[in-house]
Each structure stands twice: as structure tokens, then as C-alpha cells.
Amino acid sequence: MSSYYLRFVGADTLPKSLSKREVEECFGLSIEDIQELRPPRFRGTARLGAAVQLVMLRATGRHPDAFSGLPSVLLRYLTSALGMHATDIASVTSLYKDKDTRYEHQLWARERVGFAVVDDTTKPLLADALGEFSASAVSVDDLIQQSEHWLFDRRLVLPGDRTLRDMARTAFAEQENAAIAAVRTCAPPKQVLAALSHAFSKRSGPGGHTVLEWLRTPPGKHGQLTLSEVTKKIECL
């Protein structure tokens, strides 16, 4: 998968600074796509609407109505590729007069690129994957990002943020509870108390941060000082 695609998968907005190269590599229309978008199947602005549905789903794993706006450079590229006049349309909503047409275009785009929606069959698989990812995820947001790539790799349309976030929170909480249970089972109470006391103790030096806050601070740029700091954190743990 292109690194360009990875930049857009799961995003709820596209950068206004989207470059021409990124548009061509990630959102480009093939000759076969343009053939499919010609009349009599699609006419007028419906051609542009269907084209937006197609390229956005293929590049991001989401239908375009999940985004707050469309970059002008993308619209210029699509209208030019379709042989249409430039348009000032800024959103997908303004391309459609009724929801039925938009739904038909979404269905066509999914069939065209081989995507499917998450249903009763695939949702349990997603829940299992989240359970596995939660063992190494550092946060709910990290877990959501991993699940988005898992969905994209399996050609599944990314659900709304609330759906994924609720599932990720559940999986993350279950992993945390399992970890707590393991500690309580395997570690003597005195060692647990000693570890907690150390984690919340103040570190020497400016700032007055606790050991736990220090451990949670992300590493800086690559270099000797960063390597030394990370080594100290490993030793502390």
C-alpha cells in the first residue's frame, strides 16, 4: 500500500495543501474509471458526484460524506479528467438533490473498488482484532488507528468515528482490566505498593514532574540524548 494512502486512511478531513502529486497518485481516475463514468450511466453533475465517491472510497476507506469538505485541487483534477467545466462545489452534499442518488453512487463505488460495509458477520471479526491490538496499543486513539488500517486492508468501509471509538474503548478497558488482574495475581502487595509509590514520587530537577509523567513523555528527535533518556526509562521500568 502506498505511503500516500496511509496518510489519508481514517482521516476525517483532507489537507487543504493537498498537492497535485498526491491527487494524481491517491485520487486519480484510470481510463477504465472514466469510461464507467460516461453517459448514459452518469450524466451532468452526477458524473462528478460518482467520481468523488469512487476516488475518496478507494483512497481513504470512507465515503466522502464523512469529510467536512473537498480540496479545490481535487475537484479541479476530477472535472478536468471528466472533461467538465471547473466548479465551485465545496461539498458532496451540494452535488446531490436526494439521498437515493447518493446511496446508489455509494453502492456503485463500493462494487467498483471491491469494498463492503461492516455487518453482523464482520463486526465480530473487528472486535476480535481490536482485542488483539489492545495488547500493544498505547491509547484508545492508537487502537482506533490500527483498526482503521485493519479495515482498509480487508476492503471494509470504515464506520463512523463514534462506532469505532466505542468498540476501541471497550477493548482497551478489557485489556487494562486483564493487566490489573494479572498484577494482583502475580505480584505481592508490598511490591505493588512500592511500585506505585515510586511512580508517583517527584523526580529531582526542574519541573517537578513525577516518575510516571516522565515515563509517559514521548521521546524526542533521534540522537544521543534521546537514546540515553529512553535507556534510563527502560532501566526504571
Rank of each mutant, 00 (worst) to 15 (best):
L95Q: 04
L95A: 03
D100E: 14
T101A: 12
Y103R: 15
E104D: 15
Q106P: 02
Q106M: 12
A109G: 09
A109W: 11
A109S: 11
E111D: 13
F115A: 07
F115Y: 13
F115L: 10
V117Y: 06
T121G: 05
T122I: 04
L125C: 06
L125T: 06
L126H: 07
D128E: 15
D128C: 03
L130E: 03
L130F: 01
E132F: 02
F133A: 12
F133C: 07
S134D: 05
S136N: 04
A137C: 07
S139H: 03
D141V: 12
D141F: 01
D142G: 15
L143T: 14
L143E: 13
I144F: 10
F152Y: 15
F152N: 03
D153Q: 11
R154Y: 04
V157H: 09
L158K: 10
P159T: 06
G160F: 09
R162S: 01
R162E: 00
T163H: 05
T163K: 00
D166H: 06
M167Y: 06
R169G: 00
R169H: 07
F172A: 11
E174S: 03
Q175L: 02
A178R: 15
A179Q: 14
I180K: 13
A182R: 14
R184N: 11
R184E: 11
T185S: 13
C186Q: 14
C186A: 12
K190N: 10
Q191W: 12
V192G: 02
A194D: 12
A194F: 08
H198G: 00
F200L: 14
R203F: 00
G205D: 08
P206S: 07
G207V: 13
H209R: 13
L212V: 08
L212R: 02
W214A: 02
R216K: 05
T217D: 09
